[in-house]
Simulated scan of single mutants.
Amino acid sequence: MNMELQTKKQMNIFKKIWLGGISVVFLLLALGVVYESISSYIGVKNSPPPGQLVDVGDFKLHIHKQGTGSPTIILESASGSASNVWHDIPNELATFATVVTYDRGGYGWSEKASSDRTGVNIAKELYSALKKEDIEGPYILVGHSLGGMYSRLFAKLYSDEVEGVVLIDSRHEGYSEKTNPLLLEAGFNPVLSGYPPKHILNLLKQTGIIRILNIGNPDTETSVNIEMRPKFFDAREDELRNLAATEAALSDQSLGQIPLRVLTHGKPIDFVSFGLTEEQSRFMEDVWQQQQEQSLQLSSNSQLIVAKSSGHFIIHDQPELVINTIKNLVNEIR
């Protein structure tokens, strides 16, 4: 009998501890939600958009124009990158041309779009914003990574207004076909490109966990307040889930005689750090570089430029090379 009473007492104690622990967790989560809500409101209020919010139908697109004169250089960011990812590059380019940076629907200061995040929709939204702001061509399109595919689609849709294209370590439309089987074999979800699902990221954001992890780092303050919001996680994942449609839209593209410059990284990407084997990592790198060379076939006036000191983010590793490549192309067109 005493043993039974003692066991019951122990069970009651464990139950109270467990319920207490659960209560503490829920209390912390509730405090996190309040903390994030207040901090996010203040952060957004203190970080106004540098450009204009332009109505493109069902949402407003943030577009930032700098400089004057022709041509107009349009900078298209990579997946997961807002317009401020270009750092000082727009300022340098604005000394000799008009420069446009912008946030795709859901990114940065732009509102969330209701249409699917296909490359065609993204290109049409940008074109609409340019026309509404009276930012005329001729255009030189500069796209980094996935942004290179969106730049190419813009050139395909509005070829008469495009005079040059610069692809900065741009993803090729055949990359998924070549690499998805390997990624699936290695246990990765190729659709999300290694990112956690949006519902997990939204939960981490709304409970303040993302902000807490970045406390004390001033470099990420704008990112946490402006970029890492639920609308961004939704948009990025939607872009990736619509990647097949974007790739298909580029399958038969030809730029004709439009000048094309292809910048590719010189330092091999180490996919081993992402969980692949060395052999798999070499395969991924080989496919990427082979397809960079294949991109030259898009135009009869093309050139491959290797950024020898750069990884994938050439715009950060060798910004001067990016600026000079664009400047040389502008001078050639003029």
Rank of each mutant, 00 (worst) to 15 (best):
M1H: 09
M3H: 09
E4W: 05
N12C: 01
N12Q: 13
K16F: 12
W18A: 15
S23N: 01
S23G: 15
L28Y: 08
L28H: 05
L28I: 12
G32C: 11
Y35Q: 15
S37T: 13
G43A: 14
V44W: 04
N46D: 15
P50G: 06
G51F: 10
Q52P: 04
L53C: 05
V54P: 09
V54E: 09
V56E: 02
V56H: 01
G57C: 04
L61N: 01
H64K: 14
G67C: 05
G69K: 06
P71S: 07
S79Y: 08
G80I: 11
A82V: 12
N84W: 13
V85H: 03
V85A: 12
F96S: 10
T98Q: 13
V100F: 04
D103Q: 10
G106A: 05
E111W: 04
K112M: 05
A113K: 11
N121W: 04
A123K: 04
A123C: 07
L126K: 05
A129N: 06
L130V: 02
E136S: 15
L141R: 11
L141N: 02
V142T: 08
L146Y: 14
G148V: 02
G148D: 05
Y150P: 00
S151Q: 05
R152V: 01
R152F: 01
L153F: 02
A155N: 02
E161Q: 14
L167T: 04
R171N: 04
R171K: 07
G174F: 02
E177D: 14
T179W: 10
N180H: 14
L184N: 06
E185P: 00
N189H: 12
N189I: 04
P190L: 10
P190M: 09
L192E: 00
K198G: 01
H199N: 13
I200L: 14
L201T: 01
N202G: 07
K205T: 13
K205A: 13
T207Q: 11
R211W: 05
L213G: 00
I215S: 09
T222L: 12
S223L: 08
K231Y: 06
A245L: 15
T246R: 03
S254F: 01
G256I: 01
G256K: 03
Q257C: 00
Q257H: 11
H265M: 06
S273C: 00
T277G: 11
E279F: 10
R282T: 14
D286A: 14
E293S: 12
Q294I: 00
Q294F: 07
Q297K: 15
S299E: 03
S300T: 14
N301V: 03
A307H: 11
S310E: 07
F313M: 10
I314T: 08
Q318T: 11
E320C: 00
E320Y: 09
V322F: 11
N324C: 00
T325I: 07
I326Q: 12
N328I: 00
L329F: 03
E332H: 06
